[in-house]
C-alpha cells in the first residue's frame, strides 16, 4: 500500500492508515540504523535539498542523516531571512533549486504556510520541517512512533502537553528566550508553575513516559533530576526521528523497494 502523496505538509492531511504505514515503515528503517553499515540504496541517484530559512541544527541533521542513509545526495541550503526580504521570493529560490533537478525539498521556515507555496509551485516532493507556529509533521510522527514503541499502541492513551500551546511549534524550546510576545511573565515564573519535576510526574501513571522535541531547557521545562530517569525517552525520540524521516522520504518517492 503506497502513500499516495507528493508532499507532507501537515499531519491533518494524513489518514490513520497513512500514519500506520509511515510508522510501520519507520520500524523497519530503525532496524537498518541499528546495523553496522547503516545504509540502504533505496534513494540512490535522488537529490534531497534541505532548504532552511531558519536555523535548526537538530532537524537539519536528522533529515540529512536520513537522506544519506537512503543513499540520496544531499544539499543543505541555509538562507537568512534578512536577505530574503529584499531578494528573490521563496518560490523563485525553490524553482532555481528545482531546475537543478531536486527530488525532495525539505523546508524549514519561520512563516506559517511557506511549505504550501512550494508544494503548489514545484514538481518536487515537499516536506514541511517546521513552518512558524503551524506544523512540524515529522516531529508529530516520530512522537507517535516513540509512543507506539513504548506503549504498543496509540489508541486510548492520555497525553498531557505542557508548555505555551498557542505558540505551539515554538513553545517547546525557545519561546522563553524570545523577545516579545510570550504568554508567560518570565522564566522563573514559568519554571515554578510548569517545570516538570519528579514530584509533578507523580500525577501521571507509573509507566508514563516523558518526551520532548529538544533542545530541552533543563531546569526550566524539565527538572534535571528526570534526565536519567527511566521515564525519559528524549534521546530515543532523536534516534526514531531519523527512522521516521527515512520512512517519509522513501514513501513520498513512491518506489517499490524494501527497507532491508
Amino acid at each position: 500500500m503506497p502513500l499516495n502523496k507528493k508532499d507532507l505538509l501537515e499531519i491533518q492531511e494524513l489518514s490513520s492508515d497513512d500514519i500506520k504505514l509511515i510508522i510501520d515503515t519507520a520500524d523497519s528503517f530503525k532496524e537498518v540504523t541499528g546495523r553496522d553499515i547503516k545504509k540502504v540504496p533505496t534513494l540512490r541517484g535522488k537529490t534531497v535539498v534541505n532548504l532552511f530559512y531558519e536555523p535548526s541544527t537538530r532537524t537539519r541533521t536528522s533529515f540529512e542523516l536520513a537522506a544519506k542513509r537512503l543513499s540520496a545526495d544531499v544539499l543543505n541550503i541555509a538562507v537568512s531571512t534578512s536577505s530574503v526580504v529584499k531578494g528573490e521570493t521563496l518560490l523563485d529560490t525553490a524553482r532555481n533549486i528545482e531546475a537543478m533537478r531536486s527530488d525532495i525539498i525539505v523546508i524549514r521556515h519561520s512563516a506559517a504556510g511557506a511549505p504550501y507555496i512550494l508544494a503548489k509551485g514545484l514538481k518536487s516532493s515537499v516536506i514541511n520541517a517546521g513552518d512558524g507556529c503551524h506544523e512540524h509533521p515529522t516531529q508529530a510522527l516520530l512522537d507517535m512512533f516513540t509512543i507506539r514503541e513504548k506503549k504498543g499502541r496509540l489508541d486510548g492513551l492520555t497525553v498531557a502537553i505542557v508548555g505555551d500551546i498557542t505558540h505551539s511549534r515554538v513553545a517547546r524550546s525557545d519561546i522563553l528566550e524570545r523577545q516579545g510576545k510570550s504568554y508567560f511573565p518570565d522564566i522563573r515564573e514559568y519554571s515554578m508553575q510548569y517545570c516538570l519535576t519528579k514530584e509533578r510526574l507523580k500525577f501521571a501513571k507509573d509507566d508514563a513516559i516523558v518526551m520532548h522535541p529538544g533542545p530541552v531547557n533543563w531546569g526550566v521545562e524539565i527538572s534535571p533530576e528526570l534526565s536519567e530517569d527511566k521515564s525519559t525517552v528524549i534521546l530515543e525520540q532523536v534516534t526514531n526521528g531519523v527512522a521516521v524521516r527515512m520512512a517519509v522520504m522513501y514513501l513520498l518517492s513512491g518506489e517499490k523497494a524494501t527497507a532491508s
Partner: peptide, 9 residues
C-alpha cells in the same frame, strides 16, 4: 510579488 509569497510577508 507582494501577494504570491509567504502569508506573513
Amino acid at each position: 510579488h507582494e501577494k504570491e509569497i509567504e502569508f506573513d510577508y
